[in-house]
Each structure stands twice: as structure tokens, then as C-alpha cells.
Simulated assay, not measured.
Amino acid sequence: MPNYWGEHTSTIDWCESNYAHTPYIAETINTLTNLPSILLGLYGFWSTLSNGLPTRYSICYLGLSLIGVGSFGFHMSLRWEWQLMDELPMIYVVSYAAFLVLETSPGLDFKYGVLGPLIMIAWDVFVTVSYIYLPNPVYHQIAFAFILLTTTARTVYLTLALPKSHPARSKIGSTMAWGIATFALGFAIWNVDNVFCETLRTIREFLGPLGVFVEGHAYWHLMTGYGAFLIFTASVLLHLAIKVSPDAYDFDEKAWFPVVKPVDPAKRRRVKENGRAR
């Protein structure tokens, strides 16, 4: 039976052998390992809204699901249009996170009104148009790395700037560190997959069905999805501690999938009234 998606049109083809399991999915393991990120994002989105947090923070988690959907379609088809649906949302979500972490004035109103969102949108449009006309994966990686490192540096700075007596300082810092470390380890494993692809393919053939456990790019999906979830959770608490109150919200740092919650309903009502949460 011929491959359902035909010849691939993407500018990237990963180390996993194409159509090894079914004619309907180009890279089975790389495709399926996006499902946890999609579900984690939906869980974070639902938890944020159900716990009464400002809607702006739930969008970060929904963005994680959007990236997962795009990556699912990309690895399933290896088509250029799905490659864009994978790579461009990465830029959009991190740009949105950058906007939030740069807008840390007290209260939930935006300090510069619509100017901040307009700058973010202008950046996203510029990267989108330039990448379509210059479809070089290295260009996308540089643009993504630039905004990601800027956002991470700003977040770390804000965390360290909190007073040592701040009730959430160590919790935010440790959760953020675990998220960054998980993200970085996934990136390292992915690069091992790139450098030693032919060797790994030989190992996979030798291992047979167990070869799925040495699909390096799949670990990138799993680890970056989980790492991003932890980073988002720590960032949400950091933002609320700075913009609203240091003691109104909290999360269980021992939980596998921590989400920010109000400390008690009375404080949540106070925060909504004083901060006009939205």
C-alpha cells in the first residue's frame, strides 16, 4: 500500500525511519509522543480557569497543546504546511510568554496598554513572513532560541529579585530549575539523535520492537512538554506574586503536575476585586 501522505515536502526529516509501522503515519513514535504535551496543556488550561486565575495565564497552557497538535501533524505527514503548524506556534507561544514576563507592573492592567501586545504581534508577523520566504530550519531555531533565552533570563532575574523571605521564592526557583533542566536534557538527547543517527538506526534494528526506546527526538517531545509545563506553572505563581499578592496563590511543588491555586476562596475573591482578574 502506498504511503498515505505521499512524498514529504518538509525541509526536515528526522532520524526515525519513515512509515515503519503504518502507511498512515510517517514517524509513528515522534507523532505519538506529542499526545502527553497536548493533554498536559489542556489540563493546565482547565485547571487555571477552574481555579479562578486570570485568563491570560491559561493561554500559555493552551499554547502548549497547540504546539503539540502542530508537531503531531508534522511528524505524521512530513508536509511543509504541517511543519509551519509545528514551528510557528513555538514562536507565538514563547513570544506571548515573553510579553507576560516583561509586563510586571503591579496590578493586572497592562502598563503600556495595547502597545505591548502590538509589539508582540509585530514580532510574530515578521518571523512568520520571513520564515515562509526563507524556509531555513536554522533561521527558525535562532529566532526561537533568541526569544526563549530572553524570556528565561528575565524570569530567572525576577525570581532572584524576590526577597529571600518571600513565601514563594524557593518554590518558584526550584520548580523553574527542574523545568529548565528537563527542557535542556531533552534538547541534549535530541542532538545525540541528530549526530549519531545512522548508529542509532542500526541499534533500533537490532533491538526490534524495543528500538522505540532509543528514538531521541521522541524524548525531546516528552521532556520539553513536561519541562514547559513546570516552567509555566512557576511563572504563573511568580507573576501573581509580583502583580497581585505574595500569599494569595500557591501550588504543591511535590506534585508531578503542579497547578497554581488560590490559598483560600476568601483571598481569591479579594484578589479578583482588587486586581480585576481577567
Rank of each mutant, 00 (worst) to 15 (best):
M1W: 09
G6Q: 03
E7L: 13
H8S: 11
T9R: 09
D13N: 14
D13W: 06
W14L: 06
W14P: 02
C15A: 05
Y19E: 02
A20C: 10
Y24A: 05
A26P: 04
A26N: 10
E27Y: 07
E27C: 08
N30F: 03
N34Q: 03
Y43C: 01
G44V: 05
G52H: 06
L53Q: 00
T55A: 14
R56L: 08
I59Y: 14
I59C: 06
Y61A: 05
S65G: 04
G70T: 10
H75T: 01
M76L: 09
S77F: 01
S77M: 02
S77T: 15
W80G: 01
Q83H: 10
L84A: 07
D86R: 06
Y92N: 03
V93M: 11
S95T: 14
L100Q: 14
L100I: 09
V101M: 15
L102I: 00
L102T: 03
E103I: 01
T104C: 12
S105R: 08
K111E: 15
L115F: 14
M120R: 05
M120I: 11
I121G: 03
F126W: 14
F126L: 15
V127K: 08
V127Q: 10
V129N: 02
Y133N: 14
L134R: 12
N136M: 13
Y139D: 06
H140A: 03
F144M: 08
F144C: 04
A145P: 03
F146L: 15
I147G: 03
L148E: 06
L148W: 13
L149R: 05
T150D: 09
R154G: 04
T155S: 12
V156L: 15
Y157P: 00
L158N: 07
T159R: 08
L162I: 06
S165M: 02
P167W: 09
P167S: 06
P167Y: 08
A168M: 11
A168V: 11
A168H: 14
L185I: 15
G186P: 07
G186W: 08
G186Y: 07
G186F: 07
N191D: 08
N194R: 12
R201Y: 00
I203M: 09
I203N: 05
R204D: 02
R204N: 01
E205H: 12
E205A: 14
L207G: 06
L210C: 11
L210P: 02
G211V: 07
G211L: 05
V212I: 15
V212P: 05
F213H: 06
G216Q: 05
H217A: 04
Y219C: 05
H221V: 05
G225A: 09
Y226T: 06
G227I: 08
F229A: 03
A234W: 07
V236K: 11
L238N: 04
H239Y: 10
H239D: 14
L240C: 02
K243R: 15
V244I: 09
S245P: 01
D247P: 02
Y249F: 15
D250E: 13
K254L: 13
K254P: 01
W256M: 13
W256P: 02
F257V: 10
V259F: 06
P262D: 04
P262N: 04
V263K: 13
D264I: 01
A266T: 13
K267P: 01
R268Q: 15
R270T: 12
R276K: 15
A277E: 12
R278N: 11
